[in-house]
Nucleic acid binder design. Structure first.
Length: 395
DNA sequence: CCTCCACCGGAAAGCCGGGTCA
DNA sequence: TGACCCGGCTTTCCGGTGGAGG
């Protein structure tokens, strides 16, 4: 460890501090959430009364960090009291079968990856867990990935306690989707006594605290130009206070500075870094399916035509139909567009919030979340969308 | 307090391409 | 080879709903 420290260059003291996997000693501005979480878990542990917790908030609001932080704290207690903590990222284990299989294997049941019917895996798992008097905590990160695939792993796990005699299971679900809680079956929620913890987005001041603290550990003394952190904060604040983005930016800026053999990270390096992350947005847009591209273009077109920032879904649909017509592309039904919009929202390309407008019904308010100038050329570069560039809208 | 809009999103079924098995 | 299955994508159908305005 110390050797590694010494090997770091002039810029970084400890690069790993800026990685998203790093769990800091304390998480600024998340005291309340951590206290609630610790509280819920430790009382559940002591009283052997399982509790299910749903954590939600946008990307980069410290959800995973907070949960890992708390697990670390509880680890000691866990080891002495036979309480395994199992962390699963659902993005990697995205079917019920795989999650259950992973859990079963965790409890030393040799389940082949393929070939077993799911309910058999489930009942094996139950048996395995129940062999001992213990308290099991299962953490499902990116939990929303499971529900959308009409999987029942959640429901099974949330209700598993009623089928157990000796052991007890708590589930902690983490979700990026702010409306996820509504997505969950109300019945299951009340049945399992699910508690919710919300992680709000960080504001600029809070982001600054976070970056300052991490930078002090990550960088060598005076390796950062004074303007660097404020610039990172400003850029991240634009991304809905995404702390992960801010830390990435800092890391990449540092690496760029290092590679260019600079002694200091400068504002210029941050600029280059932010361009680099822009590249990943471009990449994402590039590989979007045609229909999603048209949909995204509809938002752009509306912005030009109406000179506004956000639009209701009805307007977007209409524009989408106009564009399909113009391009001679088969158009999708409205129902399907709802799903594509949610998808773009999850990708972080647009913001979609449900609003109720009284007499004017209930709808989604949709706005672009990335710079227009950034994605427009990418969209129009698609051969299928070429014809869009000749739609001239009076300004 | 009730209504009613404009859309949301669940359920289920169809279609399609690709993979599997006898 | 053909029958069958699977998963992803899409459509059809439809029941639901928050809140401004009556």
């Amino acid at each position: 460890m110390t050797e590694e420290h010494l090997r770091e260059g002039e810029i970084f003291a400890d690069k790993a501090v800026l990685h998203s996997t790093y769990i800091p000693e304390n998480l600024p501005h998340r005291v309340e959430q951590i206290a609630t979480l610790t509280d819920l878990l430790s009382t559940a542990l002591k009283e052997k009364a399982p509790t299910n917790i749903l954590i939600y908030g946008k990307t980069g609001t410290g959800k995973t960090a907070a949960v890992k932080y708390v697990s670390k704290q509880l680890e000691e207690m866990a080891r002495t009291s036979n309480c395994p903590l199992i962390y699963i990222n659902c993005e990697l284990f995205y079917t019920q079968h795989r999650v259950l299989g992973y859990l079963a294997r965790f409890f030393n049941k040799r389940v082949p990856v393929f070939g077993w019917p799911t309910d058999e895996v489930y009942s094996e798992l139950k048996e395995r867990i129940d062999t001992e008097d213990r308290y099991v905590v299962v953490i499902l990160d990116e939990m929303d990935k499971l529900v959308t695939k009409e999987d029942e792993v959640l429901y099974n796990l949330l209700r598993i306690n009623s089928d157990l005699n000796k052991a007890r299971v708590s589930v902690i679900g983490i979700s990026n989707n702010p409306t996820f809680s509504e997505l969950l079956d109300q019945r299951v929620k009340s049945l399992s006594g699910m508690k919710e913890i919300v992680f709000p987005a960080y504001n600029a001041d809070q982001l600054k605290d976070i970056l300052t603290e991490r930078a002090a550990m990550a960088f060598n003394y005076s390796a950062l130009d004074d303007a660097v952190i404020p610039l990172c904060v400003a850029l991240a604040a634009k991304q809905d206070g995404d702390a992960k983005y801010a830390l990435d930016l800092l890391l990449i800026s540092g690496e760029i500075a290092e590679r260019s053999k600079s002694k200091k990270v400068s504002e210029e390096h941050v600029r280059i870094a932010s361009e680099k992350t822009e590249d990943s947005i471009i990449e994402m847009v590039k590989i979007l399916p045609l229909q999603s591209k048209i949909l995204l273009s509809s938002v752009l077109m509306l912005m030009r035509e109406k000179n506004e920032r956000s639009f209701i879904s009805g307007d977007v649909y209409n524009m989408y139909y106009r564009l399909c017509d113009h391009l001679g592309v088969e158009m999708l039904t409205q129902r399907r567009l709802i799903d594509l919009i949610s998808e773009l929202d999850i990708f972080g390309l647009i913001n979609a919030v449900i609003v109720s407008r009284g007499k004017h019904g209930r709808t989604k308010e949709i706005s672009l979340k990335v710079p227009e100038e950034l994605i427009q050329p990418v969209l129009f570069a698609d051969p299928e969308l070429k014809a869009l560039s000749d739609i001239r809208v009076r300004a």
